[in-house]
Design a protein around this nucleic acid. Structure first.
Lengths: 245, 245
DNA sequence: AAGTGGTCTAGACCACAGC
DNA sequence: CTGTGGTCTAGACCACTTC
């Protein structure tokens, strides 16, 4: 006698079971049993259980930390990406903090294409981090044509953050014609992962913004957002209060 | 004598090696050796190799199909999500094709909240697919308050697609005050995965759009885009030609 | 030191595409 | 039927956090 079951993968079924359990039997921040116990309880190998946990983490339902354990994640935080107002990065009141700046003549090919820079052309690179609700949510590399901010930027500042702020300040003085953006999935580079308090390779949402001034591409920002904890918001809607129960 | 090496995971190192090889020794569409051979060539277990391949697929560098093999993926296609023009879904000239429509009184909690519907309130649900460059790129469920499109919508149409088009047509007659959007990472539900020609659980970019009319939320679209092949574009920038070489 | 999640192995079998 | 990627196992060891 053959059952008429769809051959659903074990980890898939496991995921839905766990997902339901999270909704009904656990509260945000609560810590789950460890992976070996969970696997035993469900009668599967640890690798199979981990496949289910991985998906749930990807969907922002779980948070796993090595040496600590697996906890139930809070709802994703909405982070505004397009604050209707079209402004340069570093405008007053954003949640970004400048970390450091440097100057280089080698940028990723994709950035060079967007910036329309010739090979070897100098650009300023500013590193910034974004914090929301006390948690780091994004790391960014901002590329600015050096010729656009040549005045008033002294790169020999003893304090790296001061140099970064100087570049951002110089930008504010320019007219901003417009900006456009792309969003895609990526995996965190080692450097960004550290800023985001995640392991290298973690899934991230990569937001690429191009700033146009005087008919030319003047700056390009590559921002990597934690995909597990962030929901990017565009337009007028305010990130709704997290009271939904 | 201890080497001063950072204990980089094997799969991580493998990924960078493969990534370089893809850039230099392979062309788009070319088929790679099978996983067992590759694993042997690099002296690792197949599971470890697969971890590297998984990341590369996540980044849109590879495409894997069961029963066929692993191929080098073309660059991601840019799909416009915010065509400056603020229009209802189903406006003339979009790449969406309506598939079917139905009416129900139970919608996901998150959608009900955005639509501001009372429990049990009736809504129309329209399923649409989006095709770009011959490939399916997105599947969508569009929820529309029934009271907003009550006239002229006959749900007993013999052709499901006709019913869907009727709902969309009714929308065009309404004034659109505005729209807002969120983007987040998710995993494909079984139904969407089928439409997207992917396995269930594949990573997708979930775009949630709320349409406001006469001061009320009137429609909510939940669009799931293939994360491996899509780059979402916002604003004025046209998806650049794929000539970059 | 103990306990957690992260990495890795060497095998097995399954589901699917194509001949 | 053959060959591919997808799933699953039972174990081992490593890196990290906490006590």
């Amino acid at each position: 006698m053959k059952l008429e079951t769809a051959p659903e993968p074990k980890y898939w079924h496991l995921k839905t079971v766990l997902s339901d359990a999270l909704d009904t039997e656990f509260t945000v921040g609560e810590i789950l049993p460890n992976e070996r116990d969970l696997a035993a309880r469900f009668g599967v190998a640890r690798a199979t259980l981990r496949q289910a946990l991985e998906q749930l983490e990807l969907e922002g339902r779980l948070q796993r930390r090595r040496g600590v354990g697996t906890t139930v994640a809070p709802p994703r935080v909405g982070v505004a990406v397009d604050p209707t107002r079209h402004t340069w990065p570093g405008a007053a009141g954003d949640d970004w903090q400048a970390v450091a700046a440097s100057e280089t003549d080698t940028v990723p090919a994709a950035v060079a294409r967007l910036l329309e820079t010739a090979p070897g052309e100098a650009v300023h690179v500013v590193r910034r981090n974004r914090v929301s609700a006390g948690q780091p949510v994004a790391a960014e590399l901002l590329y600015v044509r050096s010729d656009a901010v040549s005045d008033g930027v002294d790169m020999v500042a003893a304090d790296p953050a001061a140099g970064a702020r100087a570049v951002l300040r110089a930008l504010q003085a320019l007219d901003l014609d417009g900006q456009d953006r792309t969003v895609e999935l990526g995996s965190a580079r080692a450097e960004d992962a550290k800023q985001l308090d995640r392991l290298p390779g973690s899934p991230v949402l990569v937001v690429t913004t191009r700033y146009v001034s005087q008919g030319r591409a003047t700056a390009v920002a590559v921002s990597t957002y934690r995909a597990d904890t962030c929901r990017l918001t565009f337009g007028e809607r305010e990130p709704e209060p997290l009271l939904a129960g």
